[in-house]
Design a protein around this nucleic acid. Structure first.
Lengths: 190, 190
DNA sequence: CTGACGGTAGACAGATCTGTCTGCTACCGT
DNA sequence: ACGGTAGCAGACAGATCTGTCTACCGTCAG
């Protein structure tokens, strides 16, 4: 329980290994054995810490949501102009999409692999609702007449940019989406 | 070899069964046994007709592309006004997204499940290139200054609408995308 | 008649998957 | 000194996966 533990706990190492493997190869394709091997952990420790693979997937998706949330809030806070604060979300996406290993949206990918109901659905909805609220808030601050509807438009652009980035165009798709968002925002501000 | 065979061939029944099951539950989650059971076909017939599961997946994706292509070309041909011919693509998407059993883009879903390289990647790229060309041609006919760049924008909207439809908003996401496309088109026409 | 052909039914091998269980080890607070 | 806790190592069960193989059946051309 020291401040700087000499070695990360089994739970932390499992989560880090699951994050890498699940995102890179999919939650269904990657088996428990691969995760515990990379984490350097015994199988019993995994089931003691998480209970099931489903719960490990849930923890993986929650971690993805948290780090995404922190990255976006950090980026938004670097600006004061409402227009910049909204558009930087697309800049951050372009940055992510340019990194090696980018493989699109973890939530959508996981949803394509497993039964749409269940933990994946829950976490994906939560992540999506947060994004929607963020866009609505940024749009309201920017003086958009109908922030809720404008947020729906931004989500279409955001989703489209992620798919485009994953399917071949890389960061260019996000840059295209940013330009479209700018046009629409300037047209919607009162 | 008669014109109207009394019963579809094993290959056709396999393809129909694969189409339903793969799209509804994913190419990875659905096993060979499920496919042959639904098709009412022996396992040896599958391997005699397709050679491997990978080739069955390829045939499934090719069929998806062909039917999508036919549906879109049919919809486009119902109009003569270039603006309508472009926007109807989003109307068709809204129509598809409203049908029960809609589960998003077969190519993206399959790509999330299996190794990104290989047959899925090839077929997804082919489908994507066709869509890009279609949008570019429709944009050129509508008098857009830079049809290639405009096509990239339309693809962002199209992808975003599909994701939005799959993740919860149903046809509404496609209707939002259509409205955005109309705004952008009217602004881009010379 | 006969032989090729397309198809059916199902056993089988070999791999991989989740989840459980048994021992053993090392540390840590009391 | 000692008991509890966390963790490691790995065998195991039971299910499921792809792909191969044998054996049999009907049809139709030559």
């Amino acid at each position: 329980m020291s401040v700087a533990s000499p070695r990360k706990s089994a739970r932390e190492r499992l989560l880090a290994a699951a994050d890498e493997l699940f995102y890179a190869e999919g939650v269904h394709s990657v088996g428990i054995d691969r995760v515990i091997e990379r984490a350097g952990v015994a199988k019993a420790s995994l089931y003691s810490a998480f209970g099931s693979k489903d719960e490990l997937i849930r923890a993986y998706l929650r971690g993805r949501h948290e780090s995404r949330r922190a990255r976006i809030l950090g980026g938004v806070s670097r600006f004061t102009d409402p227009r910049d604060r909204l558009l930087v979300v697309f800049d951050l996406l372009a940055e992510s999409a340019g990194k090696p290993g980018f493989r699109g949206c973890a939530f959508y990918n996981a949803g394509s692999e497993v039964d749409p109901s269940g933990v994946v659905r829950e976490e994906a909805d939560h992540n999506r609702d947060w994004t929607r609220s963020l866009f609505a808030e940024l749009a309201r601050d920017a003086g958009v007449a109908d922030p809720a509807e404008f947020a729906e438009e931004m989500i279409v652009l955001y989703d489209g940019a992620i798919v485009g980035a994953r399917q071949g165009r890389g960061p260019l798709a996000a840059i295209t989406a940013r330009a479209m968002a700018a046009v629409l925002l300037d047209a919607a501000r009162r």
